[in-house]
Design a protein around this nucleic acid. Structure first.
Lengths: 213, 213
DNA sequence: GAGAAATTGTGAACAGTGTTTAGTAAATTC
DNA sequence: GAATTTACTAAACACTGTTCACAATTTCTC
């Protein structure tokens, strides 16, 4: 086998890996993670179920691949923030981008921040979670910059950042799982959910804003 | 069949329902929700798998039963707070009780606040979620009382309450899923997780405390 | 008491899951 | 053209939730 053919073969192999991943992504988004079977993925790409195991060790490895791609997507959502020079404005933008990401990609969000399995795998892999750490580093850095111009005086940067992340994560998860919808329907039936969510977020922002030195 | 026997029968039937529920509770806590099978529950109570379906319509109904019990347990955690007269102190107590509940019963917590299925069922049942609403009502009421003595001036009670709930939920979920552990290990490796969590909570408290009129 | 009826429990099966393995068909190398 | 490697798959294994026809037991009626 000459080199040109080997290359083409290799390329085809990579193509099929992508096809599998894309099919999995679509099905996961449609039916959720647990509800999509290897057989369904196989059928979508018109291959035998066993073929998938030639390209991915098991279902977990597919999930992990989507995990990596999910983080890249999140980083994309944060990309536009680089042009905001004011730290607190950037922090606000991060919050809005985070919410947007969560609402537009709820299954990916759950994959990234609400599952335990991929995390365990990642703890043994070391490198792989880098982008996750990097995302949190961005938050830490931004909070620090906010503090340098008088915001959040006297608060530890780490705790402050964890607090903000918890706030955003809780809001997104309550929304995604439907708990916000349920309690919201009973208590604040005037506005729709997105309004309720963003107004809660804005409440948090103005909450934070009042704490300026 | 006379009345005494009918009663004993009925009692036995209730007993078996309880046995199933208790076995399910233990197995769920041990291996998680998805990982425990009807067959495993059946084996634990030494009955045939099919027998379980004589007492519960399906696995969901077992989950819903545990859902109801979970809320009762949460209300128990909140019971001690009735004796705290100062609203803000009571609010702080609620936060600590909530965290305690989540950490001591992580699977139940996930069942109550991180699953979508039981919520859908409940939306069609109406009554069943009462205790969930009641728990949120307690929060609403407490926030309102805090505002009446000068806390959170100028903030809408609903949004404020949602914000607090989101904060607590996010903190608990990040802890339970292990995300706090992962990022925490890299960034704040000095303290253990419970310390990190409670110090983040206290940060939020002092954050809120500074906003007094 | 004896027979009918209703209750209570189960083994076996169905359709589905993730995964493995033995074996086939095709492409590549010699 | 023959040998070997590659790409793929049908079939099976051990699970899952769930159903159903059937058996055992208990209760009711006479």
């Amino acid at each position: 086998m000459d080199m040109g053919v080997a290359e083409r073969k290799e390329r085809h192999k990579e193509d099929l890996k992508r096809e599998i991943l894309d099919a999995a992504k679509v099905l996961f988004a449609e039916k959720g993670l647990e509800a999509t079977s290897i057989r369904a993925i196989a059928e979508k790409i018109e291959y035998s179920p066993a073929t998938i195991y030639l390209y991915y060790k098991d279902k977990n490895e597919i999930v992990h691949a989507l995990h990596r791609e999910g983080f890249k997507l999140l980083v994309d959502y944060f990309q536009v923030l680089n042009h905001i020079s004011h730290p607190f404005e950037r922090l606000k933008g991060m919050g809005r981008a985070y919410i947007q990401f969560a609402l537009q990609n709820p299954d990916t969000y759950k994959l990234l921040f609400n599952m335990e399995e991929p995390l365990e795998h990642v703890a043994n892999c070391f490198e792989e979670w880098d982008e996750g750490d990097r995302a949190f580093d961005i938050l830490l850095q931004t909070v620090k910059e906010c503090q340098s111009i008088g915001y959040f005086p006297g608060f530890a940067t780490e705790q402050m950042s964890f607090m903000i992340w918890s706030m955003m994560h809780g809001l997104c998860m309550l929304r995604i799982t439907g708990h916000l919808a349920h309690v919201g329907a009973a208590k604040a039936n005037l506005m729709d959910l997105d309004q309720l969510m963003s107004s809660t977020f804005e409440t948090f922002v103005s909450f934070a804003e009042k704490l300026k030195r």
